[in-house]
Amino acid sequence: MDYQYLLELFCGGVVKGSLYALIALGYTMVYGIIQLINFAHGEIYMIGAFVAFIVAGILTFSGYSGLSVLLLAAIVSVLYVAAYGFTLEKIAYRPLRHAPRLSPLISAIGASIFLTNYVQLVQTPDFLPFPELIPEFEFMADISSLLSSADLVILVVTALTMIALTVLIKFTRIGKAMRATQQDMIMARLVGINVDRVISWTFIIGSILAAIAGVLIGSRSGQINAAIGFMAGIKAFTAAVLGGIGNIPGAVLGGLLLGIAETFGAGYISSAYEDVFAFALLVIVLTLRPAGLLGKATKQKV
């Protein structure tokens, strides 16, 4: 057995999975609060990558390079995409808050198609080369076959983002309001929580996470186009369902498992069927645990 190869696949899977996890968090947070599958979330991620691409392009052209460009591109992208998430909820979902459940779902699919085509129209349907923003770190030279410098940046940023999210949800006022709204929306209103504002914040935070993933994937895979949101969205949604939709640690776990399943399937069986392994894993897990890995209905005593 080739342990070096196994380890390589594992590291690749964790990197890939952590990006899935970042996007999956947005699905799961929104679902947890308003039981809506925000199908336009993949497009939010794609727009994040595009904004970063444009900012990075301008800065690279003006002679800047390296991590400072990445950081600046990420900041602009995050702000821009937060506004997109906020607006998306206001336009596509809020008017349908009290409509039958199917209506906002259709609206979500519509928003997804609209955003893909909008970017194709005003930008380009072609693949664009994302500038290499992450330099090769010298201290990574020894293990660069396992983990590239870009991979390391992805892992560190993802980990920090998730720690920040955990702190936000556990300890801050808005985080507590989000949890309260998720657990009992009527009671949340009765203690004076502005539920509309909480929902807006949920979209904003989810979008920020997707934007971070978009910037990171752009600087790793090297190219982006207007359609990348679709597959990424489906995969991240799968990750969220795998972990138990509505469950935040579940989204992270689901993302990591999905990434690892994909790289192992591609590495040991066939890379042509990479996507199949992700969905096969979903089918197996849902057959055994229909609520997902960590999803469970906590029963409330009455």
Partner: peptide, 26 residues
């Protein structure tokens, strides 16, 4: 004006302490 609704509506996954803190949300 504050209401204790029928069926209590305790936030089930929040601790007792957190439930009390939510009462003081404003």
């Amino acid at each position: 004006i504050c209401q204790v609704p029928e069926g209590r509506h305790i936030f089930p996954q929040m601790s007792v302490l957190e439930n009390l803190e939510m009462g003081a949300y404003l």
